Amino acid sequence: MDDVKNRVELDDVDRRILAELTGDGRVSMRVLAERLNLSRAHTYTRVDRLRDSGVIERFTVQVDHAVAGLGTSAFIAMSIRQDSWRSVSDRLRSMEFVDHFSLLGGDFDVLVLVRTPDNETLRHVVLEGLQALDGVRSTRTWLIFDEARGGLG
C-alpha cells in the first residue's frame, strides 16, 4: 500500500529525462537541457525532484561483463521452501557471481542472474553454491547467449 501512496506521477518531460540519463548517466546538465530543449535551471529542478522523490535511486555504470571477464551468464530458477526466502536472499546477497535475484510468483520461487568467467565456474556456482543453500529444493538453468536492454534499462 505504501508504494501506491508514494508513487510519483511522471509526465513526458520526466520520461525523456529518465531516458536520457539511462542512456548516459554522466551527461552534463547543460547537454541534457539542450537535448530536451529546456532551460538548465528547469532541468536541474526536474532532476532534483526525480532524485528527491526516489524515482532516481542512484547513478551507476553499465558494465560490459564479457570485457570485465564475466563472459558466461545464466538465469537460474530456484524452487525453495516457502519459509526460507529470508535466509536464501541473505545468502544470495553475499554470494560471488550473483548479479541480480528476484522473488517470483509462478512455477519457480526465485530467479537468479549469475555472471561467471567460464562454464566451469558457473557449474560450481550452481551445483556447490545455489543448490547447497538451505531451503533450496531444485534449480533450473538457462544459459544466456546474447543480451540487450529495453528503453529504460
Results as ranks from 00 to 15, higher is better:
Met1Asn: 02
Met1Arg: 04
Asp2Asn: 11
Asp2Glu: 09
Asn6Arg: 00
Arg7Cys: 14
Asp11Tyr: 00
Asp11Gly: 02
Asp12Met: 07
Val13Ala: 07
Arg15Trp: 07
Ile17Thr: 02
Ala19Val: 14
Glu20Gln: 07
Glu20Cys: 12
Leu21Asp: 09
Asp24Met: 03
Asp24Pro: 04
Asp24Gly: 04
Arg26Gln: 08
Val27Leu: 10
Arg30Phe: 14
Arg30Trp: 06
Arg30Cys: 09
Arg35Val: 04
Asn37Lys: 11
Ser39Arg: 00
Ser39Asp: 03
Ser39Pro: 00
His42Ser: 12
Tyr44Cys: 07
Tyr44Trp: 14
Thr45Lys: 14
Arg46Ser: 11
Val47Ile: 03
Arg49Trp: 10
Leu50Met: 00
Gly54Met: 01
Gly54Asn: 04
Val55Cys: 00
Ile56Gln: 01
Glu57Val: 09
Phe59Gly: 08
Thr60Ile: 02
Thr60Asp: 03
Thr60Phe: 01
Gln62Leu: 13
His65Val: 12
His65Met: 15
Val67Ile: 14
Ala68Trp: 06
Gly69Arg: 07
Gly69Asn: 03
Ser73Trp: 03
Ala74Glu: 08
Phe75Asp: 13
Phe75Ile: 10
Ile76Asp: 04
Ile76Leu: 11
Met78Pro: 09
Ile80Phe: 03
Ile80Glu: 02
Asp83Ser: 06
Asp83Gly: 06
Ser84Lys: 11
Trp85Glu: 15
Arg86Lys: 13
Ser87Cys: 12
Ser87Ala: 13
Val88Asn: 08
Asp90Leu: 05
Asp90Trp: 08
Asp90Asn: 07
Leu92Ser: 06
Arg93Tyr: 10
Met95Phe: 08
Glu96Ala: 12
Phe97Tyr: 15
Val98Thr: 00
Val98Asp: 00
Asp99Met: 04
Ser102Trp: 15
Ser102Asn: 15
Ser102Thr: 15
Leu103Thr: 13
Leu104Ala: 13
Gly105Met: 15
Gly105Asp: 14
Gly106Ser: 01
Gly106Gln: 02
Gly106Met: 07
Asp107Gly: 06
Phe108Pro: 03
Asp109Met: 04
Val110Gly: 04
Leu111Cys: 06
Val112Thr: 08
Leu113His: 12
Thr116Gly: 02
Asp118Trp: 03
Glu120Thr: 02
His124Ser: 11
Val126Asn: 03
Val126Tyr: 02
Val126Gln: 04
Val126Trp: 02
Glu128Gln: 10
Glu128Met: 13
Gly129Glu: 10
Gln131Val: 14
Ala132Glu: 14
Leu133Met: 11
Asp134Lys: 04
Val136Cys: 03
Arg137Asn: 14
Arg137His: 12
Ser138Lys: 09
Ser138Asp: 13
Thr139Pro: 03
Arg140Tyr: 08
Trp142Asn: 13
Trp142Asp: 15
Trp142Cys: 15
Trp142Val: 13
Leu143Val: 04
Ile144Trp: 10
Phe145Val: 10
Glu147Val: 14
Arg149Pro: 01
Gly150Asp: 08
Gly150Ser: 12
Gly150Met: 05
